[in-house]
Amino acid sequence: MTAEEANAPAAAESAETDDVVRVYEIGYHIIPTVKDEDIENIVGGVRAVIEKHGGNFIAEGAPALTRLAYPMQVLTDGKKEEHDRGYFGWIKFEAKVSAAEALEDTLRGDANFLRFIVFRTAREDTRSKMRPPTLREVKRTDTIKSSPRRAEESSAPVSEEDLEKALQDLTAE
């Protein structure tokens, strides 16, 4: 078997998968030193790459400044820069395999991106609606504790006669 024959099935397979439309999600961190006005342009660049390859958008999360769980380093002009926060955003889109590959290639060379991830996902909203109830419970106990104290203070309009009587009782003892 020649090398060409051996490669033929693989080539045919990649040609087949190239046409398949799949649902992808991209999550990215834009470096925090970028100005607020420029963020929209940078995200617009990502959207342009997807549109150029015939992709459709499904959902999107606007970039917001997020604190990172650990500092990340990036090489800028041969120097290592450390960042402890970044503008985190995400886009869910539907596109061909080649579009996802092209998107990865373009983002890899972009210095504005601290880090990014592209992966296959489901079309429906994957974020859960569940919220941990712990924080709310703490607030409720606070209000319950504070309300009876106020009630005690307000319910003490003591007349002078009562006060004198009480004082006499105390001094008599």
């Binding site: 999360g61 995400w90 429906e124 994957t126 974020r127 859960s128 609606k129 569940m130 941990p132």
Partner: peptide
């Protein structure tokens, strides 16, 4: 478990509060 109790079919990497459990 937490996922079946809350009827969660997909786990998203952005759901930090869920993942922390």
């Amino acid at each position: 478990n937490i996922l079946t109790q809350n009827d969660i079919r997909h786990v998203d990497y952005k759901d930090i509060d869920l993942l922390k459990q």
